[in-house]
Amino acid sequence: MKKQQRLVVRTAILLVLLAAVGYTIYANFFTEKTAVAVGSTAPDFVLTDLNGQKHRLSDYRGKGVFLNFWGTWCNPCKREMPYMNDWYPVYKQQGVEILAVNVGEPKLSVKKFAERFGLTFPIVIDQEDQVLNAYNVGPLPTTFLIDKNGKVKQIITGTMTKEDIRRHLESIKP
């Protein structure tokens, strides 16, 4: 075998092996363990809010959507929801909606929670866990930033500061 040819073959084989190893490590450790990947279209859903109004995600095309999964028992959620509430009217005018999905708690608990913190953004309840499954949400809170084309821009797990939330809302302005 010619020297040049040998080098090409060896390089090619090593590259293939490196790609296989790299992919395995990447897929296991550097991707979110959610069904929805960054860059993919956010799964459509339809849920009812506390006032009985239906919200369908695809109706929000053209606007940015800050989709927050939460529960009343989750302390980080308790901390960040008032911040979301502060920014909601500011960014609603600029075409970014906040939609909070409660993970199937009794309507009474959710309503009391919303009253206690004076929350004004729509809160829908995922009674059957269908949306939770579709987004494969693990820990709470988890937030999906969805742009005007319905694509997931970023997935945030864990608590956010007021400034974090502003930055995230800013990033999905249409």
Binding site: I13, L17, A20, V21, T24, I25, N28, F29
Partner: peptide, 16 residues
């Protein structure tokens, strides 16, 4: 990650 890397390196060693 390092355990998976070890297994992967065994695979590479096997091929070569």
């Amino acid at each position: 990650w390092w355990y998976i890397l070890l297994i992967a390196l065994i695979g590479v060693s096997l091929v070569i």
